[in-house]
């Protein structure tokens, strides 16, 4: 029964979603949109589950003193800090007790991790966590220099949220992406070698496509390189990309049929 019910549900809904695409009737579209709403419901639960999972994994790292366990505190502080900054914004120029409120919330999280990770004497961190939580709640109730904003423009314009997004998250992600330049250069030097005919063709094509970036070739040579580069992108590249797209499309259809017909059951886990 535990296996049959999911298989039947997948078969029913899978077949419905296929046939619905070809039935342009209002009721068919209503059912389709009703089913789409379930994506959000499941997504919200998945998000909550993801946050809880991250919390548990981090606590486990601290508890077992795994390699770099100290960074788990940073991870959780970042997670809860950004959630907090996204949902709160100050009214004017006064900070009031806001920063103390943030500190209280983060200390509550840290103390709760300490309590969960501790093998003995859980009482002290638990008591401190409760105390900090009480402090945060009192500040939230009585401090009127800031407010909670749930998913609005005000929340996104919050000074702290913008500062963390603009000056921490953006540079970090851009830096990681930029590091590629160094590794690509090193890899190109070591791997891009004319070992055989195919490697030579790839090498020449790559050099021509890159050469179109060079602005000092002059009008005629530049025009020629641009034309050859466009041909490479529009003919060989296009043919290969189309083959990949068609292949992937057929693969998706085959996998979907396998799932709908119950041949592929990986989504049900080991059980």
């Amino acid at each position: 029964m535990k296996r049959q019910v999911p298989l039947v549900l997948v078969l029913l809904f899978g077949l419905f979603m296929i046939f619905q695409y070809f039935v342009p009737h209002e009721s068919s579209e209503w059912v389709y949109e009703f089913l789409l709403d379930w994506i959000y419901i499941i997504g919200i639960f998945a998000l909550a589950l993801g946050i809880w999972s991250l919390y548990v994994v981090s606590v486990d790292k601290v508890k077992t003193r795994k390699h770099d366990w100290g960074y788990s505190y940073v991870t959780l502080a970042g997670l809860f800090g950004m959630i907090l900054f996204g949902f709160t914004a100050r009214h004017g120029d006064e900070w009031g007790w806001y920063l103390i409120f943030v500190a209280c919330v983060l200390l509550t999280v840290i103390m709760s991790v300490q309590a969960m990770a501790a093998r003995i004497n859980k009482g002290l961190p638990l008591g401190l966590a409760g105390l900090f939580l009480l402090g945060a709640v009192l500040i939230a109730v009585f401090d009127d220099t800031w407010s909670f904003y749930f998913y609005t423009q005000e929340g996104l314009q919050s000074t702290m949220f913008r500062a963390f997004f603009d000056y921490i998250m953006m540079p970090i992600l851009a830096t990681i992406f930029s590091l590629l330049a160094f590794f690509i250069a090193s890899a190109a030097y070591r791997a891009f070698r004319a070992r055989n005919l195919l490697a030579s063709l790839l090498l020449i094509a790559a050099l021509i496509v890159m050469m179109r970036f060079f602005p000092y070739f002059g009008e005629n040579v530049g025009e020629f390189i641009a034309r050859v580069s466009s041909w490479l992108m529009n003919v060989p590249n296009l043919a290969a990309q189309r083959a990949i797209i068609i292949g992937v499309g057929l693969g998706i259809v085959a996998t979907a049929l396998k799932v709908i017909l119950g041949i592929e059951r990986g989504y049900m886990g080991k059980g």
Binding site: A181, I184, A185, A188, Y189, R190, F192, R193, A194, R195, L203, A206, L207, M210, M211, F213, F214, P215
Partner: peptide, 24 residues
């Protein structure tokens, strides 16, 4: 940003050529 990108591309192209010379 095209200044740094162009020069970096030229350097990468040069390294590909140098790498192939070393290889041969």
């Amino acid at each position: 940003m095209m200044g740094p990108q162009t020069l970096a591309h030229v350097v990468i192209m040069a390294f590909i050529v140098i790498g192939n010379i070393a290889f041969f």
